[in-house]
Design a binder for these strands. Structure first.
Lengths: 130, 130
DNA sequence: GAAACCGGTTACTTCAACGGAACCGGCGCC
DNA sequence: GGCGCCGGTTCCGTTGAAGTAACCGGTTTC
C-alpha cells in the first residue's frame, strides 16, 4: 500500500480527543499526508497508545480493512508500533514512534493553512468557469 | 480533476531554478500537496510567471495532457492565473496568485521534514518484515 | 449453548490519477 | 510549400487507493 493522501480539513474542524466528520469535503484539501487516514491516526495516537477498536471509533467511516492497511503501512514505515499484549483477552496496541511524532508539526502547519486559506480556495472553485 | 499528491522529495533534491529528477522515489514521500505535479509547479512559478513550455522543461517527464490538467485544476482553485497575451505569436503565461504563494511555506516545511526524516522512513521500510 | 466482542481477513467492485501516443490549428520561417 | 513551434486536445489503457460485504477463530459473558 503506497502512501497517499489524508484529509487535513477534517482535522482542522475537529478538537481533541479527535472525532472526525465523514461528510467533511475531503478531496478539497490540497495538503495531504500519507494515505487518506494516516494523519488522523497520528492525531488519534498523539495522546497515547490506542487499540484497534479505539481507533475505529473516532475515525468514523473507516472500515476495518482500510484501517488495517493504513496501520500496516505506517508500521512498515516506522511511524507506529504494533504491540500484542499476552493477556486474556489478548490486547493489540498501536503507538506513535518518534518518527511518527515528527509529523505532528507538519500536520499542524497544514491545519493552520487550511483554517486560513481553504475558504479562499473553495470560493475560487465555486466561482470558476472554464 | 480532484487534487492529489505531489512528490516533495524531488524538490528536496533540487536547487533553484528547479529541475526535477523523474527517477526520484516519488511514492515514498508521505507528505503531498495537490496533484503529483502541483508542488513542483508552485516552485517553478515562485520566481515569476512562466509559459507552458517553460514549465514542461524543468518538470521532466510531465506530458502536456497532465500538465494541462494540473494547471487547470490550480487555476480553478485560485492558485495560478492563466493569461493569454494578445501578441504575435500569442503567449500564454501562468503566474502564482497570493493564495498559491501561501503554499510555499508549507512546501518548505515538507521539504525540511523529508531532508531530516525521510532516510529513517526508508530504512524502516527496508528492514520491515511482516 | 448462544451471543457478542476483538482484531482482523478475503473477495469483489469502483473510481480517479496518471501516462502514452497521436493529432490539431494557427503562425512564422526558409 | 514544407517544416517546426506553441499550446494544447483526444483516445485509450493501467494502476492502485478506497469502499462494500461477508466471514473468521478465539474468548468472555449471559
Amino acid at each position: 500500500m503506497p502512501l497517499r493522501a489524508v484529509n487535513l480539513v477534517r482535522m482542522a474542524e475537529s478538537v481533541a480527543p479527535p472525532e472526525f466528520d465523514p461528510r467533511c469535503p475531503s478531496s478539497d484539501m490540497p495538503v495531504q499526508i500519507g494515505g487518506k487516514w494516516t494523519g488522523m491516526v497520528v492525531r488519534c495516537l498523539q495522546s497515547g497508545p490506542r487499540r484497534f477498536t479505539e481507533l475505529r471509533e473516532p475515525l468514523r467511516g473507516v472500515t476495518p480493512k482500510v484501517l488495517t492497511e493504513t496501520l500496516r503501512a505506517m508500521e512498515r514505515d516506522g511511524l507506529v508500533t504494533r504491540t500484542v499484549h499476552d493477556e486474556n483477552p489478548p490486547r493489540v496496541e498501536y503507538a506513535l514512534t518518534p518518527l511518527g511524532r515528527s509529523l505532528v508539526p507538519l500536520i499542524d502547519a497544514a491545519r493552520a493553512w487550511s483554517e486560513e486559506h481553504l475558504p479562499d480556495l473553495l470560493r475560487a472553485r465555486e466561482t470558476y468557469e472554464p
